[in-house]
Structures are given as C-alpha cells and as structure tokens.
C-alpha cells in the first residue's frame, strides 16, 4: 500500500472528461474573443450538456428533477389554491383574464389551508402525536437493535453472514404481511395472544387485553417493521470497529463495561445516527401501520393527509398538510443526507 501524495492529489481522473475538455475549451476561448462574448458561458454550458460528462449527469438529474423535485413545487403551488368541485378538484392559482377590454393576470394566493392546519386542534395534535410516536418508536428500535447489532458484530466470523441474512430476510418479505401477522396475534376478539393468555388463565375471557386499535399496537407495528433499518447500519458500523481498541482500553486499565461506554458507543455514533434517521423520518409520516393497527382513536398526520386527499377530496388541504410535514422533516432529512454523503466520502 502506498500513501503517495501524488496519488492522493490526483483529481478524479478522466473516464469521460477527456473528450469534452479540449473542444469546448477552445470554443469558449474563441467565443470570448468575439462580439458575443457575453453569450459564451450560456452557449458552452448548453453544449456541455450534450457531450460525454454532461449527458451522463443529465439523465438521472433530469429524471429526479421531473419526478422528485418538480412534484414538490406542484404540491406547494396547490397548497395555496382552494378546493373546488371540478376535475382536478382545485382552483387555478393563476388566472388569465381577457375580457376584450382588459388583459391581466390574477394570482390568488390562498392561505386558508395553512390557517386550517394551524388553527384546528386536530391537525396540530396529529403532527405532535406523529412526532412523539416516531420518537418513542425510534428509541425502542435502538434499545432492541443495538444489543442485537452488537451481538452480531461480536459473534463468530463464520456465523455472522447467517445472522445478517436472518436480519435481512424479514426485510425482503412483504411489510404488509408482517403487519398483518401482528393483527392476527393482537386482535382483542379471537386474537392469538388473548386466546393463549386466557387458556393459561392469566386473564379472564371477559376482560381481554386491548392492544389492537391503541397506540401500543402502533409502537409494536413500527418497531417490528423498522427494526432491520436500525440493525443494519449499526451492524455495519460495529463490525468494522477495530477490536484491538477494546484491548488497548483494557490494557490501559479500563473495565469492559466502561470501555463499552467510552470506546464502543462513541465510535458507533455514525451508525446510531443513520439508524435513527432511517426509522424516525419515515415513521413520522407512516400511514399503513396506523391505518391497520391503531384504529380511529390514534390520530397521526399520515392518516389525516390520506383522509383529506381520498375521502374528503380536499387536495389543496392535503397538499398544505404535506408541505408542513415536509417543513418539519426538512432539517432531519438534510442532516441525514449530509451524513450519508460524508460516509460515502470517507469510503473514498
């Protein structure tokens, strides 16, 4: 292995860059000398899109702009319009009036959807409730996931791949089926857990455990479904950890329990953060689990959004709900993105 500075300093070398450089550079030089020098960057910029490197970037970039970013702008736009009995069921934001005498453009920014969200108790509560449930679920995932990941990373090298496969396997099976399995277990009337507990006489048949259609069911559902997302980044992180660090800590007089807290845990923080983001962010907007498991009494924002959209057909309100949800989540999402980008850079 060489740590040659030359090698480290070399810029990302040319796989595609070779051709587009010379021609475009020359063209730009020539254009800059000519009469339309001010157009040079625009012309060269446009052309560079169609040469090697530009085209490679443009393909996924274009797709993501069209089907990821622009849709959000449309959501933002529609969140300012009013619901209407039409197809599509909302008013246009921009109205062009041309009555023969006058021609003008009307822009109607309607803030009533946001007002609804901020003033109506149900929405505020739904947001807070979702955040609370997601946070508690994340903590529970960490509580169960960390010891698992730790045990896996410390297990014998020969059985590690098997353990890893066992964690991944549920992830490959349908999420819906896994939620369904819990419904079968937790049902109040004729659920397996209650049947079992009644049969061994722990509880009486008249007073079964009511778990399904409560917040408890939602915690179970989220923790169960998202556990692999917590275990995998943690395992990846812990497995890479240099075990001699713990030996060094022991050698320097640190007891194993203390070494765990002062060496292992701090080193596992990138994995902990990644795992928490992977659980928390999607859990805030979770729809399927509350819809199937927690009944009508637990109000979360994902369901509220879906009801506004599907049952109420109030698309502008649903749009506003998702804009607010996104605003709440934008900071964790950006932190997640920064962290992932940094992890990838570190692997370089």
């Amino acid at each position: 292995m060489s740590m040659d500075r030359d090698a480290a300093d070399r810029p990302t070398a040319a796989l595609i860059t070779h051709e587009d450089g010379s021609f475009l550079e020359k063209l730009e030089m020539r254009l800059r000398r000519g009469r339309f020098a001010f157009l040079a960057p625009a012309i060269v910029g446009t052309l560079s899109l169609f040469t090697g490197r530009g085209a490679v970037i443009a393909l996924p970039y274009g797709f993501l702009l069209a089907f990821f970013l622009i849709p959000f702008l449309i959501v933002l736009k529609i969140s300012f319009s009013e619901t209407a009995l039409s197809i599509p069921p909302y008013t246009e934001l921009i109205e062009v009036v041309d009555d023969g005498f006058e021609y003008f453009v009307n822009i109607k920014l309607n803030l009533s959807n946001y007002w609804t969200i901020l003033s109506e108790d149900t929405y505020v509560r739904a947001y807070l409730n979702s955040a609370k449930i997601a946070a508690i679920s994340t903590a529970l995932c960490l509580l169960i996931g960390f010891p698992m990941a730790y045990a896996m990373a410390r297990a014998d090298e020969t059985i590690r791949p098997t353990l890893l496969m066992l964690v991944i396997l549920p992830f490959w099976t349908s999420f819906l089926i896994r939620v369904y399995a819990w419904i079968v277990i937790l049902k109040t009337e004729g659920g397996l857990l209650n049947t079992f507990l009644i049969s061994i006489g722990v509880i009486s048949a008249d007073d079964p455990l009511r778990i399904l259609n409560t917040e408890w069911a939602m915690y179970i559902g989220i923790v169960y479904s998202y556990l692999p997302f917590m275990v995998l980044p943690l395992y990846a992180n812990l497995e890479r950890m240099d075990m001699t660090l713990l030996e060094a800590a022991a050698d320097l007089g640190c007891r194993p329990i203390k070494a765990f807290w002062v060496v292992t845990v701090p080193l596992a923080i990138p994995g902990i953060i990644a795992g928490c983001f992977l659980v928390f962010i999607p859990a805030v907007g979770e729809y399927v689990i509350p819809e199937l498991m927690s009944g009508d009494n637990v109000r979360v924002i994902g369901r509220k959004l879906f009801t506004d959209f599907a049952s109420e057909r109030n698309w502008p309100l649903a749009a506003a709900v998702s804009v607010v949800l996104l605003m709440i989540l934008v900071i964790p999402i950006m932190l997640f993105q920064r962290q992932q980008a940094r992890l990838q850079e570190a692997g370089r």
């Binding site: 992977l278 962010i281 907007g285 698309w315 992932q340």
Partner: peptide
Amino acid sequence: YAPLVMPEVITGLSLLL
C-alpha cells in the same frame, strides 16, 4: 438520499399532483 427516508404519503401525493 431524500427518497430513502421521505414519508410515502408525501411522495405519493406529490407524484399524483
């Protein structure tokens, strides 16, 4: 990276719109 964690209701609604 954002789609990895984006709540599905948001992605779904935005694409529909």
